[in-house]
Design a protein around this nucleic acid. Structure first.
Lengths: 206, 206
DNA sequence: GTCTATAAAGGGATAGAC
DNA sequence: GTCTATCCCTTTATAGAC
């Protein structure tokens, strides 16, 4: 393997596990199986190594949830499929560790939070928005702002699961509990966005 | 002021600003206006000082959103009031810094995440659940699981605002953008939970 | 209890051999 | 390019005077 990749892989693991400040270049070198001096051949200093790790990370955060078949599956079932794939992804150890690190260092590394958001949540949102727009066009969802719908879909199916994962809670993250949150999230989303003609009691916002 | 409080206040500021690992006892001592040796009179070591800061923090995370008048204000307007108070709270610099710190150290400090969740989100959720239950009892909201309703209400009005704040994004956190997210969140929540009799097209979950 | 001064350890970064 | 050995600064923690 390329030595640079070897170092980056080791650094990623160490940073994720220990956090930026607590991670030592010694630990990275040992894990990478090289000497500390070698690190400094490829990376000017600790900060630059960290930045490289984060840039590397972007590529990983590009899953393809919406890839599934577009058949004439009922809308709620399709939403449920997407939701499950999304949440499995969000709760994966890799993504959780990645989020932790970025959130922890966001204030101290200029542009870190923005880069992460653009390459992660923003991309995801964009794809989901396109899906929502098509579904609205086909009459499978009520006509509304597709961007808002995509955002609220994510909000509802994510629930507080991601927060729990970030906080390292063990309870409430079993597969049954997770699936319950997802199902209820999809259910409420569909209630708010199903295409049925409805009678409104009063205007929702005062 | 009590010297212990003086130290805790300084430590809180330093930890929030720099993170656990990067914060130095020197910095805490200087900020507290005492010598470093004095710190060790009251706290055995850095970890214990950190733990004390976090325990202190619990008390702060107990706002009273639902305190407002219970008058015969229309339900959506009432929800909107709660939502605004909630989001203002979640986006406050203090809470954001607090969340960042806890998320960053959750994996390394046993019980930290659980303590934070129990004293923060869980309490909030419990109060909101009671409110939802009363509203459902009074026919102001569709009868449903009050706990789920409370959770989804929070999810919807929070949107990705909290994530954006945690990531330190400057865009999308202006008061107008924030209020738009809140209003749309309340709107969708009310669509899903308004008490109107409705005709469902098909079952939401396959 | 509080300070100054310092011990002891760790970690970022580099010099110089190969 | 890669290593060993080391410099030097920071940081945690403590000793000892007052």
């Amino acid at each position: 393997m390329d030595k640079v990749q070897q170092i980056l892989t080791a650094a990623r693991a160490i940073f994720m596990q220990q956090g930026y400040a607590a991670a030592s270049m010694d630990a990275v070198a040992t894990r990478a199986g090289v000497s500390k001096a070698t690190l400094y051949v490829y990376f000017a200093n600790k900060q630059e190594l960290f930045a490289s790790v984060i840039l590397e990370e972007r590529a990983r955060y590009a899953p393809s949830f919406l890839a599934g078949e577009q058949g004439r599956e009922p809308m709620p079932a399709r939403l449920l499929r997407f939701a499950r794939a999304l949440v499995v992804f969000l709760l994966s150890a890799e993504i959780v560790a990645s989020c932790r690190l970025v959130i922890a260092e966001a204030e101290r590394v200029p542009g870190l939070g923005q880069a992460f958001y653009n390459n992660g949540p923003a991309r995801l949102l964009e794809r989901l928005e396109q899906f929502m727009a098509r579904a609205m066009g086909a009459g499978l969802l009520r006509r509304a702002d597709a961007h808002v719908a995509a955002e609220q879909f994510i909000d509802l199916v994510r629930g507080d699961l991601q927060l729990r994962a970030l906080l390292g809670l063990k309870q409430g993250l079993g597969s049954r509990a997770v699936d319950a949150v997802i199902r209820r999230g999809v259910e409420s989303f569909y209630r708010a966005y199903e295409p049925a003609a409805r009678v409104r009691i009063r205007k929702p916002a005062a």
